[in-house]
Design a protein around this nucleic acid. Sequence first.
DNA 1: GGTATGTACAAATGGTGGCTTGTGTTTACC
DNA 2: GGTAAACACAAGCCACCATTTGTACATACC
Lengths: 111, 111
Amino acid sequence: MTAAAADLDVVLKALADPNRRLILRAVRSSPRAVGDLAKGLSLSQQVTSHHLRVLREAGLVHAERDGTRHLFALRADTLDVVADFVESFWPKRLAALKSAAEHTARKRRRG
Amino acid sequence: MTAAAADLDVVLKALADPNRRLILRAVRSSPRAVGDLAKGLSLSQQVTSHHLRVLREAGLVHAERDGTRHLFALRADTLDVVADFVESFWPKRLAALKSAAEHTARKRRRG
DNA sequence: GGTATGTACAAATGGTGGCTTGTGTTTACC
DNA sequence: GGTAAACACAAGCCACCATTTGTACATACC
């Protein structure tokens, strides 16, 4: 298995959990502390920390210390491998996106 | 959890296995029988059948009988929920696609 | 230094999932 | 109807994972 394929495996496994996706949603707009996430999602501190570790090892979030708190933020570019995977199976979707974009560009040209 | 979220969960769990992704790759171009897939991927018949069931319940493949054989084919449109998920977290990627498409449109306009 | 807060680490548990083995079921062919 | 081929279903085993419980570590404040 190539390194990219291994990354894809790790990323997909990390995404294949509802609580981890909730965490990703929560850190999407701004960095959040573990305790805040746990409280907001009604999860224990330990389970939240565990999921954040899985997400961090997958490269989907990154941590930064702020005193005693650990602020976690989204790393959306890691989703690249997933997007590439989907598009490799579904070029029609990519074509549809391009078509929509080109339509937008055409409209802008006209306007 | 909404129905769409449940679908996303099932699809991501189905994709989060290397052998199932290999099976998807194998049925990508044309429908394949269980035995052919098992032989080509060096998997047992039972395990291949099991993975195909998971993929079918996730809506990623569909089956069709051909005599004693069961031909499985890709259902790429099910990957829609995954693409939407990625794009909801990463609008910049969609923007990049649009930018590239617009660039193409501009080039076409010039040419 | 002592205490409180925020978090990570470790062990144990229950559940889930992948794989094997064995077997039933459907279809085709004689 | 009997046999063979292709496949699905079921039970058991083992590993992994999510969660809980308990605890250790780091930082801020007094």
